[in-house]
Structure formats: C-alpha cells, structure tokens
Write a protein that binds this DNA or RNA. Structure first.
Length: 762
DNA sequence: GAGCACTGC
C-alpha cells in the first residue's frame, strides 16, 4: 500500500474525523476554487428587432412581430401551428393588459404581478418580457422559477411551442438531474431550488437580466430565500429587473416587502363556485365527509366529486367505504354508477393516471349519469389539476410539517388549513363549469378560526441547510437578514449550533472549508459531512449508497393486504448491524445481475421494494458521486462493516440514543428524550448505543433507521460535541463519563507502549 | 409492533 494511504490510516487514530474532514475539504477547495456554472451565452441578432428600443417597446410593436411570417428569434418561417396557438393566446385575460404590463415593467425595477388561475400569467408574462427586454441582443437570459419540476418542464414545452422554437434552444428548462438549455437559451424555466443553487456560485446572478419568481404565494423555502437575496441583489444590480408573481391574497405583503413595488392585477378565468357551510361543528370529519359525498351522488346533477383528506390510510379507508355505500345507492335508489379513485403522492404513477379516466357510463340509456369520485391529499390542491370536477368536499384539514426547535424534531401534524387553502380547494370545482364546494365546518369557523395564510415553510423547518446556503450566498449577518417572515431566533440558534458542531461554521460563525464543500452537495449538512468524511474510513462508495437511500422516500413497500409477506421479504436483506447496512444490502442487490435478469420492475415487486425510490436513489447517488469526483474526494470501498458503522457514527454523532437501564426504551443523548426504536427495525435485540436517522412523532416517540455503534467511536470522532460540560446530569452523562475515562486510559497505555518502543529503537 | 402531506437541490 502506498505511503500516502498508510498516512491517512494513521490519521484516523490520531485526530478526530472532523479534523481529517476539514483538511480534505481545504485540499479539495484549493484544487477547485470556483466550480464552473455554465457555458457562455451567445448574442443573436436577426435584425428583426432593429426598430425596437430596449425597455421602450409597446404591445403594438411586439404584436406586429408576432403576426409576421418570420420568427424574430430564429429567422425561420413560422409554422401553421404557431398561428393556431397565437389565436388562443390572444384570448387569454393577460393579453388585454399587455400594454399596461409593459408600462409598469419599464417604469420600475421590481414589480408584483397578480394573476388568478387561468389568466395565462406563467406562459405569457415571460414572453411579454422577451419582446421588451431583448435578452438575445445583450447576451443575457430571462429566468422564470417554479416550485415544482413538472411545472418547469411542462410550461417550458408549452412556451417553446408558442414561440415556435425547439425546446432546449431559445426556450429551455433547468431542473435537478436535467438541464435542457443551450447557449442560445433566452428564456429559462427552472425550479426555485435550482436558481438558488446557481446563486450560491454567482451571488449577483449576472447572467440574468430579468428574474420572474412565479407562484411566490406558495412561499417555499427556496422562494423565501430568493426573495431576500433578490432584494439585496437589486441594490447591487440596478439593471436587473424582478417580477414577483402571486395569487391575490398575498399581493400587498409582497408589495410592502419590496419597498412598495407597483402592482398589476389581472383577473382569472374560472367559473363561479357556490360555497356551502355546515350549520354546526362536525366532530367526526371523516364520517361527515363520506356522508356528504354520498349525498351529492344521490341528489346532485352530473359532475365529478373531489374530496380532500389528509393521508394515505384515511384515503384508502374512505375509498372502500364510499364504494360499498355507493353500490347500495345504485341498488336501492337507482343512482348512477361511480368510480372511486384514491390520489396521493406515494401512489405509483400508473395509478395516479387513473384519475384522468372518463367518468363511468350510465348503466342503461335512460339511467342516471355516472360519476367519478376522487379522494385526494393536498396534492390536488396545487400539484395536480383535474378537469371536470364540479363538486368539492373540504373537511378543512391537511397534514402539515411542524418543527420543534427545542427537541430538534420535524413532524407531520393533522392541522386546520388556512383560508387561502380553502379558497384554492373551492376553486378546484370551477375549472370547467360552475361548481359547488361543501365545507364541513361552519361559516363562523371559517371566518374566525382559520388563519389567512398557511405558515411559510421557513417557519416550520429545521434551518441547518438554509443557514449553510445563506452563508454560501455570501450573507454573513444572518441576524439582520431581511426575511419576509423571520424564523424564530431559537430555530436559527439551533441551526448555527448544529453547523458549528459539524465544523461547517467556525466558532465565529464563519463558513469553514468544510462548510463550503458541504454546501456543494444537495444534502442535509449532516449527511454531506458524513459523505465527505467517509473516504477516511475506506467506504465512500458504501456511504454514497446509504446517503442516497436515506434522502429518498422509503424503499420498503408495505401494502395493507400483504404486510406479513412484505416484512418477511425485508428480513432477507437484514443485516445484524442495523438498518443502514440493510439499506445498503437492498441497493447492492438492486444493482446485481440477478435483479437485472429478472427485470428491475419485477424484482422490486417480488421483494416488496419501491422501484421509484430505488431509481431515484440511483440518480441521487450518481449526482453525489460526480460531485465527489469533481472535488477529488476519494472513492473507496471496504469489506469491513465496522468501517461503515464508524463512518456513520462520524456523521450521526448528534443523533444518538442510549438504552435505558432496566426498561425497554431509549434516551436520546443531550436532550434526554424518551424514545422507542421503531418497530420497522431489523435489529433483533436492543444494543446499548444506537445512532438514528430520524425522530418520528406519531402515536409514540420513535427513532427510525437505527444502527448499533460503539460509544468509544463517538467520543473519539466528535470530542467537541462530547464535551460533557454541556450535558444534563443523568444516566447518559454517567455512562459517557465512563466511556471517556476508558478511552483515555487506553490512550495512556498505548502512549506509554509507543514511548517504550521508540526508546528501544533508539 | 408501526404508517410517508407536499415539494426542492
């Protein structure tokens, strides 16, 4: 073995991992100080815009070019399809206000644009901008952000058609795992997270002349950070124009935040929806929901029904009950036939597609019409739109993420929705014709108890990644950063503390080399640090797999009809060390020739594994691996499970629990939370010390995805964290004291041995 | 002896 390698090995015993990792990070960044973002943009001048003066054009100017026979952006002749689409575009509500839009756009740096659903804002406004900003003449780009990948892709495809260009050329999109743009691209649809990543390398977003933040009212974490950033960038870059696009309710807040930016509002195009409230409070919303759906089916005219519930189990249960009851209605009251479909995120795509099936045909020529009933989570509120819905049933609840900074736990809680959500849900009934929305709460409750807006994500999340991102964005003073809604100080403190223990931030709160390197990975900082540290334990290939698997939805599938068989299948992959290595086994067999021969889909079905999660994990893994290669982080592999467990301990040292003496449960280190190991674990007996991937608050406090570790590793790998002065008195502290004592004794013995050896040599 | 709302890099 090379000298270099043995030197690294030596280091493992002498230094804490944090130090090794920090050194590796310094080295990697010394070699690659500025990661390349993209290729250079080209200028394009077909002469078609010769008469245009940038930021002084009118709707008339633009429309005459649009009506021409030559595509001003490509120089090619327009297709027939182009003119067909153009006709439709001219009917959109935004079109009537094109001039008004241009005047505001030209007169100001930042504007707020309010457009309801169906106004055409997402497809048209960026095009209005193109004809006035003329990015192709200045070698710049117009960006339009979306909270979701599918939206970015499908809108880009639509706009490419509208402009009669090839997708990926003048109009493109950029999302994780796929960049469909070229150096000709002048309009780029992208996810908000993607723009944020670009900002981390180019703080002034210099390649863009206009940035449009669409769906800003959704207040995703990325949108919120981008808004704060853009507010600063706008001062440094007076030439940059910014458009915030949102639904009505929030408009004033956005205006105010952006120093009273002008606002333009365009009506939407939807049909009226009549709202009905229950006269009194409904104790059992599930029961009330089912009764309402049945009543609609028995008494209302033709039209499909959409019922909002909170989660998979509730939805499947309601589907069964409604199907049964409807059968009875058909038999006894001669009602029309129904198809009941569940809809939630973890449903396989081919099942999700079923919601677009046509409603069932009437049973006989003069019978009553058939109806489609869709029972859905919040996914149908924003991500998926279903035409043909006429009746919406809204019990007023959804599962929402909440963060408790005191115990550092994110969890899902069934909570009342906001007024904005309720309005959005009701709107789903009016997409094709006038509809009705049945709210299963009183009008009084709607007015007095529902909050106006759901809390933005930034107030409900662990902010470790966010703080690291902000630091990487060059924002040093987080305390005075102008958030639209500032997070709780305690949440910020927790994030800073965590990043400091991970050595991503120095004691002064400055970004360290390790912090800069960690921010390159699209991962939770803890996982990024673990990955960066893993080559020192000779197992970066293994940790790559494990990290990828824990950053995607669970790979284990457990259908209600075959729980036992699914559990048995899982046990075939079980590893005595714990759940992390079990995940690794799954991945390695997924990649094996055997699985390939059987066919990956079939193999996954046979083994009760999620094909979708495993393929996503594979994409994540290759993305992470590319970043490792880019920074020359060693890719190596081990045959010793202890190496893997040590590498895990080096990352998860803040998520440790110790078995309680005498009783069944565990106590988390430092916070002394009483927890149980989740029953899904493969661990047969309870180890004294475990690291865990997540803390889940459901019927009880559980820790999920756990691996047994040796406590001596922990105190050696993360001495700063295991400085016991910061621990509360108790069993855990006593045990740790003993561990530290024994580690120190061992060290002294070894030191004296070493001394004797060197004396002998001398 | 349980349950993953939904996104995103």
């Amino acid at each position: 073995m090379s000298e270099e390698r043995s030197l690294k090995k030596q280091k493992v015993s002498d230094e804490s991992t944090a130090e090794i990792v920090a050194e590796a990070a310094e080295e990697a960044l010394r070699l690659h100080p500025h990661p390349q973002v993209d290729d250079t943009l080209v200028h394009h001048d077909n002469g078609e815009f010769a008469k245009f003066k940038r930021h002084q054009t009118t709707a008339y100017d633009a429309e005459s070019l649009e009506n021409n026979t030559i595509n001003p952006f490509t120089g090619n002749e327009f297709s027939n399809q182009y003119f067909k689409i153009l006709k439709g575009r001219r009917d959109l509500p935004v079109h009537a206000q094109r001039n008004e839009f241009l005047k505001v756009f030209q007169s100001t740096q930042i504007m707020v644009f309010v457009g309801e659903t169906g106004s055409g804002k997402t497809t048209q406004i960026p095009q209005f901008v193109l004809f006035d900003d003329l990015p192709h003449l200045t070698g710049s780009q117009v960006a339009c952000t979306q909270p979701r990948r599918v939206a970015a892709m499908s809108v880009a495809a639509r706009v490419a058609d509208e402009l009669d260009v090839e997708l990926g050329q003048e109009v493109g999109y950029s999302i994780r795992f796929e960049n469909k743009t070229s150096n000709k691209t002048i309009l780029k649809y992208m996810t908000d997270g993607m723009l944020l990543r670009e900002a981390m390398e180019d703080h002034d977003l210099k390649r863009y002349s206009v940035i449009i933040l669409d769906e800003a009212h959704e207040r995703t974490l990325a949108t919120d950070i981008l808004m704060g950033l853009l507010k600063q960038v706008s001062i440094r870059r007076p030439d940059l124009k910014i458009i915030i696009m949102s639904a009505t309710l929030d408009a004033e807040k956005f205006q105010k935040y952006f120093n009273d930016a002008p606002l333009l509002a365009v009506p939407g195009r939807t049909h009226p929806v009549e709202i009905y409230y229950t006269p009194e409070f409904q104790r059992d919303y599930l029961d009330a929901a089912i009764r309402t759906v049945l009543q609609i089916h028995a008494t209302e005219d033709e039209g499909d029904i959409l019922l909002f519930l909170t989660g998979e189990e509730e939805i499947e249960d309601a589907c069964r009950k409604i199907s049964l009851e409807c059968d009875e209605l058909i038999r006894e009251q001669d009602c029309g036939p129904v198809d009941v479909y569940p809809l939630y995120g973890s449903l396989p795509p081919h099942q999700q597609q079923k919601i677009f099936n046509p409603a069932p045909q009437k049973l006989r020529p003069n019978g009553r019409p058939g109806r489609k009933i869709i029972i859905s989570t919040n996914i149908a509120e924003t991500s998926l739109t279903i035409d043909g819905i006429v009746y919406v049933v809204d019990p007023g609840f959804s599962k929402q993420k909440v963060y408790n900074p005191r115990i550092r736990v994110e969890s899902l809680l069934v909570s009342p929705i906001s007024k904005a959500s309720a309005q959005q849900r009701a709107g789903r009934a009016g997409r094709t014709r006038p509809g009705k929305c049945f709210r299963l709460y009183t009008e009084e409750a709607f007015k007095k108890e529902l909050i106006e807006q759901s809390y933005p994500e930034i107030l409900r999340s662990n902010l470790a990644s966010t703080v690291l991102e902000l630091k990487k964005l060059g924002i040093d003073d987080l305390v005075h950063f102008d958030f639209m809604d500032p997070p709780a100080p305690e949440t910020m403190m927790r994030a800073l503390e965590e990043l400091n223990y991970l050595q991503c931030l120095s004691d002064e709160g400055d970004l360290t080399a390790l912090g800069r390197l960690s921010s390159q990975f699209p991962l939770d900082p803890m996982l990024a640090v673990m990955l960066i540290g893993s080559p020192a334990f000779n197992c970066s290939e293994e940790i790559l797999s494990i990290v990828s698997l824990i950053s995607v939805p669970s790979v284990f599938v457990r259908p209600a009809s075959a729980r036992k068989r699914a559990d048995e299948c899982k046990m075939q992959f079980a590893h005595p060390d714990g759940d992390h290595v079990t995940l690794l086994n799954v991945y390695e067999q997924f990649q094996s020739d055997d699985a390939l021969q059987i066919g990956l889909h079939q193999w996954c079905r046979d083994n009760f594994l999620s094909y979708r999660s495993l393929t996503t994990a594979k994409s994540v893994r290759s993305q992470l691996r590319r970043i490792m290669e880019k920074f020359d982080l060693e890719l190596n592999s081990t045959s010793r499970e202890d190496d893997i467990r040590k590498a895990l301990a080096a990352g998860f040292f803040m998520q440790v629990a110790k078995k309680k003496s005498g009783s069944k449960g565990y106590l988390t280190i430092k916070d002394n939370q009483e927890v149980l190991i989740h029953p899904s674990t493969v661990l047969a007996k309870d180890p004294e010390w475990v690291i865990y991937n997540e803390f889940v608050l459901t019927s009880k406090n559980y820790i999920r995805t756990v691996t047994a570790v040796n406590p001596e590793w922990l105190v050696e790998l993360a001495p700063k964290y295991y400085n016991l002065e910061h621990f509360n008195k108790g069993d855990v502290k006593l045990s740790l004291e003993r561990v530290i004592d024994s580690v120190e004794t061992k060290k002294r013995v070894e030191d004296s041995k070493d001394k004797k050896k060197s004396k002998k040599k001398a």
